[in-house]
Structures are given as structure tokens and as C-alpha cells.
């Protein structure tokens, strides 16, 4: 285990940020801490970095007890949401900062910094000031800066949160590729489930100061431990008293034994996909529900869906459903 966090509790005044959290992060993996804002994920990351200290509990990094070590004594690289660029230093000096602190020889610093700038595609911006870079470039610089000191663990706090959608997507792919090359143990915090599902090897869902579930993206999506995880990881709708993913509902033209009758109330086209809103006539549970179903356009056309049409709905094979609690 690269990072082992045990029994962490942390309060800010009356607010419980983390409550009895245990977490193990395997070496060389890319792990996402996913959850709504205020759920405690950033606090956990900052405790691992030494930027906060827990009220109780321990932090172990690569077998070393680090709970009370100040950040500068942990082998940890930290990337901030708002870059925390050293505004008065050039891109080169920003990346060189940690190496200069460690009093490395000039030639070695130069070699290492240029390698990293190449890695983050900023080699031609070495002499610029951070204010002359775009947000995405600044964040890549911050990443190079954190990597320069060869940390055992790389921590990223909402690293793409301040960027616009397009850049965010680019950087996301780029982070994944970078990780595949470098294999440094990485934890990043995000509230964006798509980001977590797409990039990480493992996802830790945190809510209300507690870990809800830990697992691979597929595990979490297909076998959510509870309502919260299911709702947080993707779209959900209710059919016959159960939570279902809208793309897991099968629409039938004819009645089947396990299907529920429903009327189409509204059809909305979103690009190639069609969202059908329906009203059930009350299934086995006897409840009227208003599910929506996600279909492709060809499926919708084949079924000749239109508002007012009567159809039958059932969950498709091997569905993930949860009883509504």
C-alpha cells in the first residue's frame, strides 16, 4: 500500500468534515476521490498532503508514519485548483522551485526542468510569467512543478475545476496518458463523476464525511452499494418503485408478463439520442411512476414512439436496480 489512512476524524468547529475514515491507496494507481462539494474529499486530500492535520487517526505514506509531518517533509506533490502559480517567477523557475530548495546542481536542475516542460508541452514558454499563460497551461505548469521533485505521491485538488469544458476534457485525457507513462501514485479530487469514471483506476465516493463505496469505475457504476452512489455516478429514474438507469429500461410494443404498461407523455431529441418521458399505469407495486427512458434514434423510430402511445416497460437483462429506500 502506498497510502494508508486509518480512523481519520476532522472537525472544523461544529462541522464534521471527516468521520472515522479508513482508506488504502495502492501504489502506482490513479485514484479519484469523488463526491459532492462539502463532502470532505478535499479535506482528506489535504490531510494526506499535510496541509491539514487530523483530530484523530493516522496517515502512512510508503510505510512511513506521516500523520504529524509537515508538508515539506512528506514526499508529496500537490496541485491546487487555482494553480497556486508563483506569480513573480517564470515558468522555468516555477518548475525548478522544489529542486532549488533541495540545492540540486544547476545543470541537473536545467536538465530535469526542460524534460518536464517538454512532457507538459510548455518548453517554448519557459521564460514566460504565469500571467502570460492560459488556465490550462498554468495547470500543466503546476503539475510539472509538483512532479519535478519526484514525489512518491501526487495529489490533485479539483485540478480541472477552474477550466472551461473543452480544456478540461483535453487535460483529463492528458493526465491519464501521463499517469500511464509515469506510474506515480496519484489521488485526485473531483465532483465530476464523468471525470472520475473516465480517468481513474479506482474511485472512492465520499459524502457527508464518510466513504460510501470504493471500487473500480465499472464496479461502482454496475454495482453501486447504495442509492447515493447510484445517483451520483449517473442518471437514474424510478420504474415500478425501483431506481433504474434510464438506458437499462427496455421499451416493448406488446405486453409481457414482467413489463409494466405506460403512456408516452413527451419526447425530446438530444442529438442522436431520444429521451422519452412516460407515465406508468401502476405496476405490480400499484404505484404510478413517471420514468424516463434513454433510447437511440433508430430505436425510437422502430418503436414508432409518439406522445400518447401505449407501451410496456421492463428493466433489461442484468440490470442494476436498487429498491428505493
Amino acid at each position: 500500500m502506498s497510502i494508508a489512512v486509518t480512523g481519520i476524524n476532522k472537525r472544523f468547529g461544529d462541522f464534521v468534515a471527516l468521520s472515522d475514515v479508513d482508506l488504502e491507496v495502492p501504489t502506482g494507481r490513479l485514484t479519484a476521490l469523488l463526491g459532492p462539494s462539502g463532502g470532505g474529499k478535499s479535506t482528506l486530500l489535504r490531510i494526506i498532503a499535510g496541509l491539514e492535520f487530523p483530530d484523530t487517526g493516522t496517515v502512512e505514506i510508503e510505510g512511513v508514519h506521516a500523520t504529524w509531518l509537515p508538508p515539506q517533509k512528506r514526499s508529496v506533490g500537490f496541485v491546487f485548483q487555482h494553480y497556486a502559480a508563483f506569480k513573480h517567477l517564470s515558468v522555468y523557475r516555477n518548475v525548478a522551485f522544489g529542486l532549488e530548495i533541495r540545492k540540486k546542481p544547476k545543470a541537473e536542475i536545467r536538465k530535469r526542468v526542460m524534460e518536464l516542460l517538454e512532457l507538459v508541452h510548455l518548453e517554448q514558454f519557459a521564460d514566460r510569467l504565469p500571467s502570460q499563460l492560459s488556465g490550462g497551461q498554468r495547470q500543466r505548469m503546476a503539475l510539472a512543478r509538483a512532479l519535478a521533485v519526484q514525489p512518491e505521491v501526487l495529489l490533485l485538488d479539483e485540478p480541472f475545476g477552474a477550466l472551461d469544458a473543452q480544456v478540461r476534457k483535453e487535460l483529463r485525457d492528458w493526465l491519464r496518458n501521463l499517469h500511464d507513462e509515469m506510474h506515480v501514485t496519484t489521488i485526485f479530487v473531483t465532483h465530476d463523476q464523468e471525470e472520475a469514471l473516465e480517468v481513474s483506476d479506482e474511485i472512492v465516493v465520499i459524502n457527508g464525511g464518510k466513504i460510501e463505496q470504493t471500487g473500480s469505475p465499472d464496479d461502482l457504476y454496475d454495482k453501486p452499494a447504495n442509492d447515493f452512489v447510484m445517483k451520483f455516478l449517473g442518471p437514474v429514474t424510478t420504474l415500478d418503485g425501483r431506481l433504474v438507469r434510464p438506458h437499462d429500461i427496455e421499451v416493448l410494443r406488446a405486453a409481457e408478463s414482467d413489463a409494466v404498461g405506460a403512456t408516452v407523455t413527451k419526447l425530446t431529441r438530444v442529438g442522436f439520442e431520444v429521451r422519452a418521458e412516460l407515465r406508468t399505469a401502476g405496476g405490480r407495486s400499484g404505484e404510478v411512476s413517471e420514468p424516463w427512458v434513454q433510447l437511440t434514434r433508430s430505436q425510437a423510430e422502430a418503436l414508432a414512439l409518439e406522445p400518447g402511445r401505449e407501451v410496456w416497460l421492463r428493466t433489461s437483462s442484468a440490470p442494476q436496480t436498487l429498491a428505493v429506500s
Partner: peptide
């Protein structure tokens, strides 16, 4: 430790 370290923040 008896006197806990305090983060900058």
C-alpha cells in the same frame, strides 16, 4: 506530539 503542528492555512 504534545504540541501539534499547525498548517499554514
Amino acid at each position: 506530539p504534545r504540541r501539534r503542528p499547525r498548517p499554514v492555512s
